[in-house]
């Protein structure tokens, strides 16, 4: 090891902190740019496209919930769609039966998702890896039939139709544009909350349990509480996404919440980058648009194309799109470092 003089050490440290400040500035600019782009987007595309992007937004919220549960806390769920169903029905029933305005359904849907998630998370503590994945898969399998069974509440197979939200305050925008902005606002709040949560004590506890649960427990981390908490937070995010789905599509029916939805969420989560926050957005984009792209390439065999796209993604970006971006970013930082 070379022995540096104090002056040299101070100089490198100074250069480093300057570089860090510069990088943090770039990141901030990038984030603000993205938000501006997101706000401008509905004015640049058709109402139908806007509707699609609204779907991207709420699906991203659900994927973020799954990322917290599976990516950060290491509990794999193949049944996350069940929480979306729960939130979707909470919103539909509140709006249809009780005439509750759409914007008041978001918080109850999230709360019920939270409670239900915690309850599912309690027995899940005893299951690891594949066994947990299979148990949650059972949840996904059961969901549509449970919804059909409780016809009195859910209206069974015919589903529930709700009204499309009106544009408030006489804003000069279309209903689809308003829905997009409404969803975007909720997304920003939830992503900001997730970032703060994951950077603090709770986030460290989640990751510690995932990486080394024995060591985590011998630090005094209460895994018996934090594991169901991760389920609860994942459930709350999915619940909110479900309510937003009801409001956006204005219709819920049991068969939208089958096994395929849950698996799709996991696909989105992995493509975006499962242990990341920003990756959830890419996950949402992938879930909404990959089927479209596949259909455009081949009308006859879109699922074959879908499969090929998935395989290509896994080869090209094994740690997801966010992992890929991080890799490029680190390469850039390294080059800056060697230059100074």
């Amino acid at each position: 090891m070379a022995v540096d003089t104090i002056e040299e050490k101070l100089a490198t440290r100074h250069a480093q902190s300057q570089l860090e400040a510069k990088l943090a500035f770039y990141k901030r600019i990038g984030l603000i740019g993205l938000i501006i782009f997101a706000v401008a987007l509905p004015f640049l595309v058709s109402d139908f496209r806007t509707f699609q992007f609204t779907r991207v937004l709420y699906i991203s919220i659900a994927v973020l919930g799954l990322n917290i549960l599976s990516g950060y806390n290491g509990q794999f769920s193949l049944g996350h769609g069940a929480f979306i169903a729960l939130g979707a029905y909470v919103a539909a029933i509140m709006m249809d039966r009780w005439g509750v305005p759409y914007y008041l359904t978001i918080i109850p849907a999230g709360l019920i998702g939270f409670i239900f998630g915690f309850l599912i998370g309690l027995p899940a503590r005893r299951l690891e890896g594949l066994y947990l994945a299979l148990a949650t898969f059972g949840l996904a399998l059961a969901t549509p039939q449970i919804l059909k069974k409780f016809e009195i509440i859910t209206m069974g197979v015919q589903g529930i139709v709700v009204d499309k939200p009106e544009v408030p305050f006489g804003l000069p925008i279309s209903q689809d544009q308003w829905l997009y902005f409404f969803t975007l606002m909720i997304l920003l709040v939830l992503f900001w909350a997730a970032r703060n949560l994951l950077r603090a004590r709770t986030g460290r506890a989640f990751v510690a349990i995932r990486d080394h649960h024995m060591a985590a427990e011998s630090m005094g981390v209460n895994a018996g509480f934090y594991k169901p908490l991760a389920f609860a937070i994942g459930g709350a995010y999915a619940g909110v996404a479900g309510a937003l789905a009801t409001i956006t599509i204005q219709f819920v029916a049991p068969d939208s919440f089958g096994v395929f939805l849950s698996i799709t969420l996991l696909v989105g989560s992995v493509i975006g980058g499962i242990a990341s926050i920003g990756g959830a957005i890419f996950g949402g984009i992938a879930i909404v648009f990959i089927p479209n792209v596949a259909e455009e390439i081949s009308k006859a065999a879109p699922w074959a194309i879908y499969g090929v796209i998935l395989i290509l993604f896994m080869y090209a970006m094994p740690s997801g799109i966010m992992g890929f971006i991080n890799m490029l970013w680190r390469g850039y930082v390294k080059r800056l470092l060697t230059r100074t």
């Binding site: 460290r204 990751v207 990486d211 060591a215 005094g220 981390v221």
Partner: peptide
């Protein structure tokens, strides 16, 4: 976790590093 709370710290076999966290985050844990 209750044993830890009593003031017994375990430095486990194989070190039990939380690899994806930073040095400082490990210490915070």
């Amino acid at each position: 976790e209750s044993v830890a709370r009593l003031g017994i710290a375990h430095v486990p076999e194989g070190r039990g590093t939380f690899e994806k966290l930073t040095t400082e985050e490990n210490l915070r844990l």
